[in-house]
């Protein structure tokens, strides 16, 4: 535990990160940046879990465990997403979200 830093400070940081992620997901035009925004959201969740575990339930392990699983699954998700992004690049020679509109009616 850090001197003078409580659970509130951690929650403020994680909440800001979460909403930066949501903002980035909506505003950004590049597929890779959108993927990065999603990673920000998942990492804010990890901060939440670890901070809750450390400060509120020091004798439990569930928060640590789930954050490990979240990291692993985020990697799997990124792998699949990047594979599909590569395929988009092959089809369009670009990964700008503006061009992914072949089904616009």
């Amino acid at each position: 535990m850090i001197e003078g830093v409580g659970v509130t400070e951690f929650l403020v940081v994680s909440t800001i990160m979460f909403f930066i992620g949501i903002y980035g997901f909506v505003v950004r035009k590049n597929l890779i940046t959108i993927l990065m925004s999603v990673e920000l959201i998942l990492n804010s969740v990890n901060i939440n879990f670890v901070a809750f575990n450390k400060y509120l339930y020091p004798d439990l392990l569930q928060g640590y465990m789930i954050s490990l699983f979240v990291i692993g699954i985020a990697a799997a998700e990124a792998a699949v997403a990047i594979a599909i992004i590569l395929n988009v690049y092959r089809n369009l020679q670009g990964i700008d979200i503006e061009h992914i509109n072949t089904m616009k009616h």
């Binding site: 699949v80 599909i84 395929n87 988009v88 992914i100 089904m103």
Partner: peptide, 12 residues
């Protein structure tokens, strides 16, 4: 391309 587009929209 339509199929790829469906995939990327779904995963994100």
């Amino acid at each position: 391309m339509k199929s790829t587009e469906a995939g990327i929209k779904l995963i994100l």
